[in-house]
Design a protein around this nucleic acid. Structure first.
Length: 873
RNA sequence: GGGCGCUUAGCUCAGUUGGUUAGAGCGUCUGGUUUACACCCAGAAGGUCAGUGGUUCGAAUCCACUAGCGCCCACCA
């Protein structure tokens, strides 16, 4: 098969074209086959307006490998792609763009603003889509979904209404994490902590002293708390105390609460129920008055006298000044603590009371064979009982810990972009009605004018439904029935709580089923120094640059090989470059193979499996096939990739191809090995393998081929061992040549002494000569003393390399002695082991046998060495 | 404060039920152009597997403690 191909593989020349071929072939779309259990992954949806980053690349590479492998195993395989509307992130982005044009969303109005949003999303969705394709992702685009699609929105409304009717969703006036920049509430896990050094103010607080970082909240204080065990203050508990402050005087009650630490600060805490989560909890316990003083803009409210309208920061400054004037500031210290900030806007969180929608995580609403369970209990159960397996296992603890401590989930957001809450209030009597559309009339007062709740739902509410809303739920669709629950949910460990836990929660409620059987968690991307990639550090690597430069296959391998689940991944250009080299190696080895085959060779059979080399490579390949299947079934992608890499380069290229040039030439085997390797490599490096497959003039696409399976009749341990011996002889000769500084061009002679098995040598004479650069090989069963030679043994063979005038007899002797000594130590250790009764009693038979044969082998070697040493004297 | 992880060759990392005298890639050094590939080939150097103790016939692997690094959760005003 003669083909003219470039000596360098240029990924950019072929990748897009190959992707198009795959997609057009329909290979990405599974056929439902009721007799088989499908393999399904719901792709974690990137933000619709997002750009591909390395985190996506990693996710796509891992998932694509799993998908391609299972598809090639002829399992109906669905990888469902899609995008997320990412309400807060996207809205912020568009608001900013509009603001540049001098437009605020308020000036546009909700409807017009939404139109802008939709347009923006529509225009940018194709970008992320094409970038996903760039990674070679073989996902089913015919089933692409977007969280704001009609079907998905319907699912969101449906589940909200069901939960509402079950009393699982309720509306409450409660303290929430307020993001004063995005002007919305956010969930507990959307709050991040940043260490900051602020001032800690010690303030004269009536007859007491308190310490606080937020003096301005004094305006909302309604109590002062002490530890009930604290002798200093016990006597005050229950008393009302007047506190003088810049606006005159206010009254608080002294409460005793065990949350207060005696040792911290003054041991006394001012309590601001409306603007601190902890204080709010105390207020609930003690039935305290709740006084709001900060509004949703983060400004002081009208009830704050002269401070009204100031931001909290402005107010703090002025307020402290005023306190100082009144002599109420005792001292000010630097204080380092964790400040709560919004994970989206980075703004300091302003806890405040507002009316929000919550999911009650403790209400027992799931009927589990007659036992009523809460979503929290059920979520914990499905992981504990192994229905859902988390990889790596250790993250189960994270999950359990978070779920156990889960508080009611605040699901409403004061954003415009998102799923609007399907609740309508009667304009007349304010009766709330859960409905997908505007109700006809109020069931209480019979009026028919309504206003829909202005809030939207947390993005994670809709993505929590992702595995089943994308398959048609609440319709009983064929897809839903066949493909759900999905097989693997693959994502980064940083979103276990945001997303994985929410999916489990929502799915166990909605379907009384799990969303996925396995959770595979990948790590975070880091630079070579282990730092996160960020704009400010300017250490980011753009996957698209890497693809342009080195090709997608190289990028994929660079991310997959050497990385294990749950561990962070350090990525840098040299790494990708080295895999680019490997891709090129695949290309060239294939090019070489193609020069040596006709192309119409049949499968290997007994008749055309001829030489030891044939049997050696078939056996080795068989081992690799078994391991590959095993590894991929167990999600050990890295191990599989590394082993295949090693096999391809070292076993196939460096040994098999080299040894097959000559007496061992057998195109049938060569073709079979190459094709099998291409299949094994395809999930990892889909483009180059597909391109080569195409060069081989195959009818079908490689993507649709079957993944190799073990061929039991292709195991030839004995013949394989023969080639191992030949290999070892060549290696030793090469090593000696290098050590003796024999020019590569110079050929030398070898005498091989053996009592039996000379046929092994005889049938590989050409190979030995070529690879060890030998002129003449003499095979003999009559051992002669040979002093002017280098000597070594390989199993039953003793090899002499006569190198007249180059041998230093004394040095040779010394070397032999050293080797004998070294082997002697080893033998001793083995003998001690075998003489140890507890070892022979307790160790498994196989280990003992192994040790024994090792001992025998080494003894044989040492005998030969001793004989040789004697000969030299 | 609670939990988790990491520490193996100069660098990046494999090493899953404990069992050959511990591996790979990159880098380094020496040497090379041979039926594909210099994005290549051949050879070599380089490790008391963080430390200590324990369990075991046997430990990089299991347990305990120590040290350094990192992450997550909670949060104290």
């Amino acid at each position: 098969m003669k083909t003219q191909l470039d000596t360098v593989y240029t990924p950019s020349k072929y990748e897009d074209e190959i992707y198009e071929k795959w997609e057009k072939s329909g290979a990405f779309t599974p056929e439902i086959d009721e007799s088989k259990v499908p393999f399904v992954i719901s792709m974690p949806p990137p933000n619709a307006t997002g750009r591909l980053h390395l985190g996506h690349s990693l996710m796509l590479a891992i998932e694509d490998i799993m998908i391609r492998y299972n598809r090639m195993c002829k399992v109906p395989t669905l990888w469902l792609p899609g995008t997320d509307h990412a309400s807060i992130a996207t809205q912020t982005k568009v608001e900013k763009i509009l603001l540049e044009k001098g437009i605020t969303k308020e000036s546009l109005g909700r409807e017009a603003f939404m139109k802008e949003m939709e347009e923006y999303v529509e225009n940018s969705k194709h970008i992320i889509r094409s970038q996903i394709k760039k990674m070679g992702s073989s996902c089913d685009w015919t089933r692409e979904r977007y969280t704001l699609d009609k079907g998905l929105s319907n699912a969101v409304q449906e589940i909200f209404i069901r939960m509402y009717n079950d009393g699982l969703i309720y509306r409450g006036n409660r303290i929430v994490n307020w993001d004063p920049v995005s002007k919305t509430s956010i969930a507990d896990d959307e709050v991040e902590y940043k260490e900051v050094t602020e001032k800690l103010y010690y303030i004269k607080y009536g007859p007491f002293e308190v310490a606080t970082t937020r003096p301005e909240t004094m305006l909302g204080d309604t109590a002062v708390a002490v530890n009930p065990e604290d002798e200093r203050y016990q006597k005050y508990i229950g008393q009302k105390v007047k506190i003088p402050f810049p606006l005159g005087e206010f009254e608080v009650i002294v409460i005793g609460d065990k949350e207060v630490e005696k040792e911290f600060g003054t041991g006394m805490v001012k309590v601001t129920p409306a603007h601190s989560v902890v204080d709010n909890e105390m207020a609930t316990r003690h039935n305290l008055e709740v006084k709001m003083v900060i509004n949703q803009e983060g400004k002081m409210m009208d009830n704050c006298g002269k401070y009204a309208g100031m931001t909290t920061v402005e107010c703090r400054e002025k307020f402290v000044e005023d306190l100082k004037e009144m002599g109420l500031i005792i001292k000010i210290e630097d204080y380092t603590h964790n400040l709560s900030i919004s994970y989206r806007s980075g703004a300091p969180i302003e806890p405040l009371i507002s009316k929000q929608w919550f999911i009650d995580v403790n209400k027992k609403v799931i009927n589990d064979n007659g036992v009523m369970k809460s979503v929290k209990e059920k979520s914990l159960e499905v992981v504990k009982n192994g229905e859902i397996k988390i990889i790596p296992e250790r993250f189960e603890k994270n999950y359990n810990n978070w779920t156990e401590n889960l508080r009611d989930w605040c699901i409403s957001r004061q954003l415009w972009f998102g799923h609007r809450i399907p609740i309508y209030y009667c304009d007349n009597c304010e009766n709330p009605i859960a409905s997908k559309v505007t109700p006809d009339k109020c069931d209480k007062c019979e009026q028919s004018a309504f206003t829909q709740d202005p809030d939207t739902l947390d993005t994670w509410f809709s993505s929590g439904l992702w595995t089943f809303s994308t398959l048609g739920w609440p319709e009983k669709s064929k897809d839903l029935e066949y493909f759900h629950p999905t097989t693997v949910l693959e994502t980064g460990y940083d979103i276990i709580t945001f997303w994985v836990a929410r999916m489990i929660l929502m799915t166990t409620y909605a379907l009384n089923d799990i969303p996925f059987k396995n959770v595979y968690l990948h790590g975070m991307i880091r630079d070579k120094q282990g730092r996160k990639m960020s704009k400010s550090l300017n250490n980011g690597i753009d996957p698209l640059d890497m693809i342009a430069k080195y090709g997608t296959d190289a990028l994929r391998l660079g991310m997959i090989l050497g990385n294990t689940p749950g561990n962070d991944l350090k990525i840098f250009e040299e790494k990708i470059e080295s895999f680019r080299n490997f891709i090129n190696k695949i290309w060239n080895a294939s090019r070489f193979a193609m020069m040596n085959i006709e192309g119409d060779e049949k499968e290997p059979t007994e008749a055309n499996i001829k030489t030891d080399l044939d049997k050696w490579i078939l056996s080795k390949l068989n081992e690799l096939v078994v391991k590959s299947n095993d590894n991929l079934k167990n999600f050990k992608l890295s191990e599989c990739g590394l082993e295949t890499y090693d096999f391809f380069w070292n076993t196939f290229c460096d040994w098999y191809l080299e040894m097959s040039k000559g007496e061992n030439k057998n195109p049938v085997i060569l073709k079979y090995i190459l094709e099998t390797l291409l299949k094994l490599l395809h999930p990892f490096a889909p483009f180059v393998t597909e391109k080569i497959w195409n060069n081989l003039e195959k009818e079908n696409l490689l993507i649709a081929e079957e993944f190799p399976k073990e061929r039991e009749n292709f195991n030839f341990p004995e013949e394989a061992a023969n080639i191992e011996k030949i290999k070892e002889i060549i290696e030793k000769i090469r090593s000696i040549r290098a050590e003796m500084k024999i020019e590569p061009a110079k050929k030398i002679n070898a005498i091989i002494y053996c009592e039996k098995n000379s046929n092994i040598i005889n049938s590989n004479l050409e190979t030995l000569k070529k690879l060890a650069r030998l002129e003449k090989i003499e095979i003999t069963d009559n051992k002669q003393s040979e002093k002017n030679a280098k000597y070594f043994t390989v199993k039953e063979f003793e090899i002499f390399l006569p190198l007249i005038d180059m041998i230093d007899l004394e040095a040779e002797k010394k070397k032999l002695k050293e080797e004998i000594e070294n082997k002697g130590t080893y033998i001793k250790s083995l003998e001690t082991k075998l003489a140890n009764k507890t070892f022979t009693d307790k160790a498994p038979k196989a280990i003992i046998e192994q040790t024994e044969s090792k001992l025998k082998e080494t003894k044989d070697e040492i005998d030969k060495l001793n004989a040789q040493l004697k000969d030299l004297d």
